[in-house]
Design a protein around this nucleic acid. Structure first.
Length: 754
DNA sequence: TTGTACATTCTTTTT
DNA sequence: GAATGTACAA
């Protein structure tokens, strides 16, 4: 196997002896290719950098940043640099520091949301908030939407609150405040109450001095739109703008950038880096059109294409290029190998009988690689959806192979953490009704739904917060029995904690509060298996509290940083979704579940048709291009979905990879067509050497090979029952089943009935 | 108000 | 298969 000599990955220039002086020799430009240099040295005017996977995008961005500083074009605080993830922001900050030889302070470098939060704290009063506003988490959002929808008595089955929240978020993604929703725009969701709910939702947030994630962008855009003085202030301040992952921007983010970049009588020095082929977030409101339209939005824009890939082998690049060429409406860009010494191995495609075998095969392959001395941290299993990790986890555990799940259940999303955060929020801001609602009855204090409803009603009538109402009612002796005692004790705990907060600081105050109100005791009494772990998590949370000066600073940090601590560095196999893998790279990548309905996902295709199919294809492209040396695609003949088995046919994406860059193996319905021509791969490579298939006396599978089946034929399928063939494509059938509707199935899985 | 039994839905996801 | 939601009893 031509696996051993790894071509070196280009690293940022090491230890430049750079003091930030304009006269510094520009050795940081020397190891760049001509396109990269152009992308860095074209500092004035709008610039679009189309950066394919693995073409040194981050390097260009950071070097460009440093270049602007080192040539004296701007001071650090005059450059605005935005990314999508905290991780990307952190990486940029570190690499800029390395280039300059010292950490730079006062940068406007961060995620869209973090930078907007910073702006919004300065100008909150323009949108009816104060600078101490809280940022809601998704639980709060959903609870609020449910509350607001309740009076309208819409069927929650047909119109779930989740969907309503989705609509509101999409509106926010598009920069639409409630006043900007036209009647035509008002979705027909829940009989057209969506815009009304939206308006009420926004009013409610304002009343509790809170905003949600979308608001961070939306409010700031609204301020920049309506306050020319504020806008002018930022225009004076930001001379250069750098944007990472431009293809993932949604409309508000685009509006925000355009407002900041278009300055009267000055050039728009905005440089956007992106790759239309890696746009995989449209379901979250991202508009690929933003990148496709860039030259129209910013006339006279220069466009630089980075196509030299220094990451993957020529085989992988050709495979990925062939696959993505099936998409239409691309800006046109072909990855070329940046080096000639890395032909590499073909992309492996392995067909397996079922999803259990799939996990087994991957586990075996990983074990083999490990015994050959390859680091586990250089291998990744990338799947379409998070739940697909399970069988692999089980297999890896059984094999004793350490693994890590990247982006699983995040630390700050655990219930116990959110409970504690809600306690802290009420402590920091007693008017935070949404946080209060979360914790009034956690632990159980006998303050249930009806009691809470009474409190809410009373609070609305008096125009005060829930905590305000509780204190008032207690003072008036208007409460009785259980709720009086329970709420009294709770308010006691808060006021004691508030005293401690002033005297001994926030860490002690929070500890005391959680103890006092019985929250910690609740978990100590809990006999379930996970209770001790939850207590540990809470300890961890309190430990993190120490690093922050105030409770407010801590809560802001938490709201914006969703990542748990990165435990990279340990030698473990990486399991994650394809979305989560964007921006990462590994020597070896396993891509399981390439089957119709799974990948491309039926769900997204139902929602978005051809556009979604293309996005799925881009996702496949992202997956392949994560691999430096070897990519292995797998597909199974049947798969466990929910509780039962479902037959599946290989993904169309497999056929779309040019066959000369693919090595097919495995005995599957798909492979049977080529099997006679191409001998099994198993004998050749040591990597995935495997026992021959066991005999399969599984009843669901007819012994006969593909019979001649035509359109209109009536067929029977073990799983789907009776149906009529509506289309035939070699050995795949489109069948309209009586019970389950239209499905694509393998011809070999059905029987003709007469 | 709380607990239990049963039913239903869902599984891209980052900030 | 899990997690959430609903209905109903205590």
């Amino acid at each position: 196997m031509t696996y051993a000599p790894l071509f070196p990955t280009p690293r940022p220039a090491t230890s430049q002896a750079a003091t930030p002086q304009p006269a510094t020799p520009k050795d940081y430009l020397e190891r760049l290719n001509p396109e990269q240099r152009e992308a860095i040295e074209t500092t004035e005017g709008p610039l679009l950098i189309l950066a394919g996977a693995g073409t040194g995008k981050t390097r260009v961005l950071t070097t460009r940043f440093a270049h602007i500083l080192l040539t004296g074009r701007a001071r650090p605080y005059q450059i605005l640099a935005v990314t999508f993830t905290n991780k990307a922001a952190r990486e940029m900050r570190e690499r800029i520091g390395a280039l300059l030889g010292e950490a730079v302070e006062g940068l406007w470098l961060g995620t869209f949301h973090a930078i907007c939060a910073r702006m919004l704290r300065r100008h909150a009063e323009y949108v009816g908030l104060t600078s101490s506003f809280t940022i809601l988490d998704t639980d709060d959002q959903l609870r609020l939407v449910k509350q607001l929808m309740a009076p309208y008595r819409v069927d929650p089955k047909r119109w779930p609150a989740q969907g309503m929240l989705g609509i509101i978020q999409r509106w926010k993604d598009r920069g639409l405040t409630p006043e900007r929703i036209t009647p035509a725009e008002d979705d027909d969701y829940a009989d057209g109450i969506a815009s009304r709910i939206y308006a009420e939702y926004q009013a409610r947030l304002r009343a509790v001095n809170a905003c949600d994630f979308g608001d961070l962008m939306l409010h700031v855009v609204e301020i920049l739109r309506t306050r020319p003085d504020v806008l002018a202030q930022y225009h004076r301040s930001f001379r250069y703008i750098l944007v990472d992952e431009y293809q993932d921007t949604n409309t508000v983010q685009y509006l925000w950038l355009r407002l900041l970049a278009k300055r009267e009588g000055a050039p728009s020095n905005i440089a956007c880096v992106g790759d239309d082929d890696q746009s995989i977030y449209s379901w979250r409101g991202a508009e690929v059109e933003n990148i496709l339209r860039f030259e129209k939005d910013f006339p006279g824009a220069a466009v630089v294409r980075l196509e030299r890939n220094y990451r993957s082998t020529a085989q992988i690049l050709a495979a990925a290029a062939g696959l993505i060429s099936h998409n239409s409406g691309r800006l046109g860009k072909t990855l070329r190998p940046g080096r000639d010494d890395a032909e590499g191995e073909k992309v492996r495609v392995i067909g397996v009988w079922d999803s259990d075998e799939e996990a087994r095969v991957v586990g075996d392959a990983i074990e083999t690689l490990r015994t050959q001395g390859h680091a586990l941290s250089e291998m990744a299993i990338l799947m379409r959806a998070g739940f697909q990790t399970r069988p692999f986890e089980e297999r890896l555990v059984a094999r004793g192979i350490p693994y890590r799940i990247v982006g699983g259940v995040r630390f700050y999303e655990r219930a116990e953490i959110r409970d504690c955060l809600a306690y802290m929020r009420v402590l920091a801001q007693p008017a935070d009704d949404l946080a209060f609602e979360r914790i009034v009855n956690v632990p159980r204090r006998g303050v249930g739904a009806t009691a809470l409803q009474k409190l809410q009603l009373e609070a609305r009538q008096r125009g005060i917060s829930l905590t305000g109402v509780v204190s008032a009612l207690l003072a008036e002796a208007a409460l009785k029995g259980r709720s009086k005692d329970a709420l009294g004790a709770l308010m006691e705990a808060f006021s004691r904690a508030r005293e401690t907060l002033g005297a001994e600081g926030h860490v002690v105050a929070v500890e005391q509060l959680l103890e006092d109100c019985g929250y910690l005791q609740m978990w100590r009494d809990d006999k379930s298996l996970e209770a001790p772990g939850r207590l540990d998590n809470i300890k961890e949370l309190i430990r993190a509290l120490v690093d922050f000066g105030t409770l407010g600073a801590f809560l802001e940090h938490i709201a914006l940083v969703t990542e748990g601590e990165e435990t990279a560095g340990e030698d473990k196999v990486n399991l994650m979704t394809l979305h989560g893998a964007k921006g990462l790279e590994f020597d070896t990548v396993f891509l399981p579940g390439w089957e119709e309905g799974v990948f491309p996902s039926q769900r997204s295709m139902d929602e978005g048709g051809l556009k979604s199919l293309e996005e799925e294809r881009r996702l496949a492209y992202v997956g392949l291009t994560r691999a430096r040396k070897l990519a292995t695609v797998l597909h199974a003949g049947r798969r466990r979905i929910f509780a039962n088995w479902q037959d599946s046919i290989p993904s169309r994406f497999i056929e779309e990879i040019p066959s000369q860059h693919v090595a097919i193996s495995g005995q599957t319905p798909f492979e049977r067509r080529q099997a006679t021509a191409a001998p099994s791969m198993f004998a050749s490579g040591p990597l995935l050497a495997r026992k021959p298939m066991r005999d399969r006396n599984v009843p669901s599978r007819p012994a006969s090979p593909t019979p001649d089946i035509g359109v209109g034929e009536r067929v029977f399928h073990q799983k789907f029952g009776y149906g009529v063939v509506t289309d035939v494509d070699v050995d795949r059938l489109q069948v309209l089943f009586e019970q389950t509707g239209e499905k694509r199935v393998m011809a070999s899985f059905v029987e003709i009935v007469s």
